[in-house]
Design a protein around this nucleic acid. Structure first.
Lengths: 213, 213
DNA sequence: GTAGCCTGACCAACCGGTCAGTAGTGTGGT
DNA sequence: ACCACACTACTGACCGGTTGGTCAGGCTAC
C-alpha cells in the first residue's frame, strides 16, 4: 500500500518513523485540521522544512500514510488471522478478541494509536486516497457480515439483521478507545472478555452458546 | 442553559437560527477546525463581520451553543422521559428507542444533526465550557449505568459488567449516524427494532425476556 | 566532490476577530 | 408633516498571527 513498508517500526529511516509517530499522535489528539506541520516538526525536533524533505507529498500524504498503517495493523492482526479460521463462530470470536486487544493495547503506548484515526478525518484525504481507504474499510465490514451470514446458515445466529448486527459490533469496538483507561479498574483482558460476552450474547442462539476457556 | 431558548426553531431572530443551523451543518461536515467563520457567513448569506454582530463570543461560543442544543434535545427526548419510568427494563427500552430515533430522524433532515456533534470536537471548547458539556454527558452515562444496576438488583441482568455494558450500548447507538442511510434498505423503525433486539438480547437474562409489541 | 540531511528566510493565502461607518427603520417632539 | 434621534443590521476594509508549502544554500560524511 505504501512505498515504505511499516514506517512506524523501521530501524532504518529513523527520522521517517519519528515523523509518522509524532503526526499520528498529534492527529489523534488535536485532529487533522487542528495539527500544524510546525507542531509535527517541533515534536520530532527538526524544522518544518525538514519534514518536507521526507514527506514530499505534504500534509495529505502524511494523513494517508498514517491511515494506511492503521489499516495495515488491522489486516495483519485481525483480518488475516480470521481468514485462516473456517468455522464461523470461532472466526467471530477471533475477530472480536483481536480487534479489541488491538485497540486497548494501542492506547497503552502513550495515548492514541493509528488504528483509531482511520474512522474520523476521512474528509482530509484527496478523493483518490479516500476511495482507497474507504474500500479497505468496506472489506472489513464485509468480512464481519459474511461471518454472520455463515453463522446464520449454520443455524447459530439469532433472528437479527446481519448488517445492523455487523455495524453494531463495530460501534461497540471502535467506541472503546473513547472510554477505556488502561490505568482504570478493568484490564484490557477483562474488557475484551466483557465485550465478547456482550456481543456473543446478543448474536448466538442460547442453545448453541458454550463456555470458552 | 443558553441565553436564547432553542435558537434552531425560533421564528423571531431568524438570522440567529440560520447561523446556528449553518454552523452545525458545517461543523459536522468539515469539523470544527476545518470550518471557517467566512464559510458559515457565506452559507447564511451575510459577511463574516455580520456573524459577530449576533455571536459576540466568537467561534468557541458558537460550538458551545450547538453542543448545548444537541444535549438539550437529548434531555427532552431521552433523559426526561426516562426519569418518568420507574421500572428498569421499561426505562432501558425507552432510552434505547428514543435515542435511536433521535439520531435516525436527525439524519433525515438534510445530513447531520447537532446531536451527533457533541461526541467529537470537545477539544475546541474552552475549559469552562468543556467541563459543562462533559458533565451533562456524564449524567447521561450514569442514567444508563444506574438503570443497568437496578436491572441487576431485579435479577434481570445477565452476568456482565454494568460499565462496559453501558458504554457498549452507547457505542452502538452513536455509531448509527455513521452508517445509517434514510434512503436505504432499512427504515428508522426497523433499525430501532433491530438495535433493541441486539441490546436487550445481550443484557437481559433469557427467562426474563418477553415479546413486546 | 557530491549526495543526503536539514536550516532560515520567505511566500501567498487564509485564519479569527475588530472597527468605523452606513443604510434602513421606527419613535418622539413640535 | 417634518425633522432629529436612536437603534438594529450589516458592510468593507483591515489587523496581527498562522497556515501549508518552497527554495537556496550550508553542513556533514563518505
Amino acid at each position: 500500500m505504501n512505498s515504505l513498508s511499516d514506517p512506524f517500526e523501521a530501524t532504518e529511516n529513523e527520522r521517517l518513523a519519528q515523523i509518522y509517530t509524532a503526526a499520528a499522535e498529534l492527529f489523534c489528539e488535536k485532529g487533522f485540521d487542528g495539527t500544524s506541520m510546525s507542531a509535527v516538526a517541533e515534536m520530532v525536533g527538526i524544522t518544518k522544512a525538514g519534514i518536507y524533505h521526507f514527506i514530499p507529498g505534504g500534509k495529505k500524504d502524511l494523513l494517508f500514510a498514517i491511515m494506511s498503517y492503521g489499516l495495515d495493523r488491522l489486516d495483519t492482526h485481525v483480518i488475516t488471522p480470521a481468514h485462516a479460521i473456517p468455522d464461523a463462530e470461532e472466526r467471530l470470536r477471533s475477530i472480536i478478541n483481536n480487534h479489541v486487544r488491538l485497540i486497548t493495547s494501542g492506547s497503552k503506548t502513550g495515548g492514541h494509536n493509528p488504528v483509531t484515526i482511520v474512522v474520523e478525518e476521512v474528509g482530509g484525504l484527496s478523493p483518490t486516497h479516500r476511495r482507497k481507504i474507504d474500500q479497505r474499510k468496506r472489506v472489513y465490514v464485509e468480512l464481519i457480515r459474511d461471518t454472520l451470514k455463515q453463522l446464520k446458515q449454520d443455524g447459530k445466529l439469532q433472528a437479527v439483521d446481519e448488517t445492523v448486527a455487523a455495524f453494531s459490533l463495530l460501534g461497540i469496538i471502535l467506541w472503546i478507545s473513547r472510554w477505556y483507561d488502561p490505568d482504570g479498574r478493568l484490564s484490557a483482558e477483562q474488557v475484551a472478555d466483557e465485550i465478547m460476552k456482550l456481543a456473543l450474547g446478543s448474536l448466538l442462539r442460547p442453545q448453541t452458546q458454550q463456555a470458552h476457556h
